[in-house]
């Protein structure tokens, strides 16, 4: 099939403002990944087209972008999931809410700053088990935060959030997901400190339960649910299925 890629281009070294550029590719297979098409454009037609990518199968989180109006990973969207027919048109633009560095590449620093602000790391200063072995955790307690351990920090959720578009100071869904992963880990001891951060005006209360994050997540994390659970933790504390 034939595919026309309509790509939002911008190189601040030479462009005054962003513009749309069209590239047509022939002999595209319906099960080609959008990332492969981007590579074909870059390799065969215009080497100046810039985008991030690495693993190419939806695990590293490099290639988040807006594809046909929705945030996706370019390596996790097949052409046939977008459209069918002899001539398919695909529109690609950078994620919104982060400053565009070049073409589809955005400045991830503010995103990681929010990530770092929620103490996204395990805290437990209690003495280690005396037998020198692992801390114990029941399967049910482990399952409680399983969903949010899947996050790959691709920023698809945060940059799909109208609250984040309006206000970049909002920590955003991804950071809250990270906080959730530790708040609900029965081994962790710093839930109260994280909740303190998230209680601030730019914390969880900016979530308006819009659900764009949940549908944008390429790892199918139940993001809005996780945010609601963090809000619940603020109201009534954290309870684990099994006492430990």
């Amino acid at each position: 099939m034939r595919v026309t890629m309509r790509i939002r281009r911008f190189n601040p070294e030479k462009d005054q403002k962003p513009y749309w550029a069209d590239y047509t590719l022939d002999q595209v297979e319906p099960n080609d990944r959008v990332l492969e098409l981007l590579h074909r454009v870059k390799w065969e037609q215009d080497g100046t087209l810039s985008f991030r990518r690495s693993c190419a199968h939806g695990v590293c989180g490099s290639d988040g972008m807006r594809i046909n109006g929705v945030n996706r990973l370019a390596c996790k969207v097949l052409v046939n999931a977008l459209d069918s027919g002899d001539h398919v048109k695909i529109q690609i633009e950078p994620m919104l809410g982060l400053h565009v560095i070049k073409d589809l590449i955005v400045d991830m620093e503010p995103f990681f700053e929010h990530y770092r602000s929620v103490m996204p790391y395990f805290v437990n200063d209690d003495p280690l088990p005396e037998d020198g072995r692992e801390r114990l955790q029941s399967p049910a307690n482990r399952a409680q935060f399983d969903d949010t351990t899947k996050c790959i920090l691709c920023a698809c959720c945060t940059t799909s959030c109208p609250s984040f578009w309006a206000n970049g100071d909002y920590v955003g869904p991804a950071a809250i997901v990270q906080a959730h992963r530790f708040i609900y880990d029965s081994r962790d001891n710093a839930a109260a400190e994280r909740l303190k951060v998230l209680r601030e005006p730019d914390g969880v209360w900016r979530c308006r339960t819009i659900f764009n994050c949940t549908s944008a997540c390429p790892r199918e994390i139940e993001v809005t649910r996780a945010i609601a659970e963090v809000k619940a933790a603020m109201r009534r504390g954290v309870k684990h299925p099994d006492p430990e």
Binding site: G69, S160, P162, W165, A166, I210, F211, N212, T214
Partner: peptide, 18 residues
């Protein structure tokens, strides 16, 4: 841009409910 992009982003029913 926030307002126009909210209208451009193809969010699902949740976005329009909001």
């Amino acid at each position: 841009t926030t307002v126009t992009e909210t209208l451009r982003y193809r969010g699902k029913i949740g976005q329009w409910s909001w």
